[in-house]
């Protein structure tokens, strides 16, 4: 049985101006020790999905449907005190901006020891020792001294190392990493990803890696979920998503990765903006931005996910003409735009 099984998760925000369907029926699985990527643009609902797993959604947001089965237990039905045991104990989380995610008013030692005291039987001294060891393992020199510093005395990359060390202190089964490298310098990004990988191999932790960067996913994840407008549009192994993308949005994302092979000097960007989620989606949410020739105006419910091959499924869209390969569609598009 999978470690985590998210089924038809729905999280809505009830705003004055209407209901924003930030997550509208998302499903995925994470096996023990596996790394799963969740990919999408800003506003696709990937972060909200992750916060929903730990029920970290504040008013006016509410989880309105679905289930989150973690090791045989539905987290959406668990009591609040049970949730507090799970948060930081069995599921940990790291965040995008290590600058603001650590409390600037408290020493690193206080913040790390706090986690251990909440979730283990260690006393103050033992907890401190364990925290120092954890800092050493993520490559922080003179950890026994530096652990008494405040967050602002560390650089951005170092802070993210501290975050990772804190998150893994209790040896959780699952680590949710919400854009862990987005706020960091490119050179630091690779180091932090390597560190995550290396800690995962030691501890056997499963990881959900949320990112908008398909390039980050490529080197790290076994499975990938592509989200658009609060829904899954495609999911499969990393190879399937990269070498055989089916949905037009996945194809466009894949084209948007700059690579040394890119012909010409133009970088492809997906045109347009994500849709307004406070309005119900008619048919395909990606339709307005879809580069394929349009066939019919979309209506009715969003397309069902269909299984393409073993472990690979995608929304099957009928509103555009998919007969040509996307390269041809895009090339004509780009050349038109620049001539």
């Amino acid at each position: 049985m999978a470690l985590l099984h998210v089924q038809d998760l729905k999280t809505y925000f009830f705003m004055r101006g209407g209901v924003v369907r930030a997550v509208d029926g998302v499903s995925f699985e994470v096996e023990r020790g596996q790394t799963v990527g969740i990919v999408g643009e800003s506003g696709s609902g990937k972060s909200v999905s992750c916060y929903s797993i730990l029920r970290l959604i504040d008013e006016p947001g509410r989880i309105v449907g679905g289930s989150v089965m973690f090791d045989g237990e539905d987290l959406l039905q668990a009591t609040n005190s049970r949730m507090r045991e799970i948060r930081g104990g069995r599921i940990s989380m790291i965040f995008q901006d290590p600058m603001t995610s650590l409390n600037p008013f408290l020493r690193i030692s206080t913040q790390m020891v706090e986690t251990l005291r909440l979730h283990t039987d260690l006393d103050q001294r033992a907890a401190l020792h364990k925290a120092i060891a954890a800092l050493e393992e993520v490559g922080i020199a003179e950890a026994s001294k530096r652990i008494h510093s405040y967050p602002h005395e560390f650089s951005g990359g170092m802070r993210q190392r501290v975050m990772i060390a804190s998150a893994l202190l209790t040896e959780p089964d699952l680590l949710i990493a919400d854009e862990p490298t987005t706020a960091l310098d490119v050179t630091i990004q690779a180091q932090v990803l390597d560190l995550l990988k290396q800690r995962q191999e030691r501890l056997g932790t499963a990881i959900i890696l949320v990112t908008h960067d398909l390039g980050v996913v490529a080197g790290t994840c076994e499975r990938v979920n592509v989200m658009y407008a609060g829904r899954d549009v495609e999911s499969g192994t990393a190879d399937q998503i990269f070498y055989d993308p089916h949905h037009a949005y996945t194809q466009a994302l894949q084209k948007a990765i700059p690579s040394l092979q890119t012909k010409g000097d133009l970088l492809y960007t997906v045109p347009g903006m994500p849709p307004d989620l406070s309005k119900p989606v008619q048919g395909c949410a990606f339709y307005p931005r879809c580069p394929y020739p349009k066939l019919a105006p979309p209506d009715g419910p969003p397309p069902e996910l269909v299984v393409l091959t073993e472990g690979h499924c995608a929304q099957d869209c009928q509103y555009c003409d998919r007969s040509k390969p996307i390269e041809d569609v895009l090339t004509s598009d780009v050349t038109e735009a620049f001539e």
Binding site: R84, R87, S92, F95, E114
Partner: peptide, 14 residues
């Protein structure tokens, strides 16, 4: 409203 409060919640702090 700071991010670190979210971190604390995610750690299971009451």
């Amino acid at each position: 409203n700071q991010d670190f409060v979210r971190t604390a919640r995610a750690k299971g702090v009451p």
